[in-house]
Simulated scan of single mutants.
Amino acid sequence: MVLAITTSCLSNAGLITDHDGYVTDSVTGWQWLDARFTDNMSYNDVLASTTSGSLIGWEIASTSEVLGLLLHQNNNVLIPTTGTGRTWDTSIFSFKALVMMLGDGSYYGDNANHGYLNGMTTEISSYSNRAGAPRTVQIGWWSDKVAQGFLRDDSWGPGSHSTTNIRTNTWLVKKAEVPEPSTLAIFALGMIGLASRRFKKQS
């Protein structure tokens, strides 16, 4: 798979940047994997690949983590959510750029007027006809809608999509590493030592 290496801002605040196969949220420092890498894989397939396969280092994101990414791409404007269908709202900016960069899989649609991306998360769906299935978050854009963007939270894939063996895309994230307390303590002691030496020289 060859993906072009580009860097571009998705929002006016420049919170999301595009790289080779992933995007970075500068607010959290987290990386989000292109959906092409999980295209047509079941939740179980993806989970196995994150522990002993080609996706080691990545983890399946929670619904709240995905919504956080979308919030930052939406210039930190609160995005309304729903479980009964697409949420259209004038506060939702177009998700076109994010959709184009994060997915071109079997559950991605694109033409001159619209596009969408669906992905599974760590939670289990609350819908009775999807008992045992992962909760999904779907985003999209529609050029002839007032808001031009939509968000659909946990309302995709009824009926046969009722187990963790459904095949769609998955939201995968690689979280920024936080320094261990011991590392921070050593750094702090070093700074204190340098400051004390400077103080002694001055006195």
Rank of each mutant, 00 (worst) to 15 (best):
V46Y: 00
D25Y: 03
L102R: 06
G159V: 02
I92H: 02
G149L: 03
S160R: 14
G68S: 09
N76C: 09
Y107K: 11
K201L: 04
N113W: 13
G29L: 00
K175M: 06
Q73K: 04
G157Y: 03
Q138A: 10
A35Y: 09
Y108I: 04
L117D: 08
R135N: 07
S162D: 01
S126L: 10
N44C: 00
A97N: 05
M100F: 06
L67M: 08
T121D: 05
Y22P: 00
N113Q: 13
G103I: 05
T24C: 07
N165G: 04
L3N: 09
T122Y: 11
C9H: 12
Y116E: 13
Y43I: 02
I192P: 01
D25S: 13
G83H: 15
T183P: 00
D154H: 07
L194Y: 09
F199Q: 12
S26R: 13
W156C: 05
T121W: 07
L67V: 00
A61R: 01
M101N: 11
V2D: 10
L69G: 03
V173S: 05
S143A: 10
A48N: 09
G83F: 10
S162N: 13
H114I: 02
A4L: 12
G140S: 08
D154F: 06
Q73N: 15
T170N: 02
I139P: 06
R167I: 02
S106M: 13
G68L: 11
N113H: 07
Q138M: 13
W30R: 09
L71R: 14
A35V: 03
A133Y: 10
T63D: 04
N118V: 15
T6K: 14
A185S: 13
G68T: 07
A112H: 01
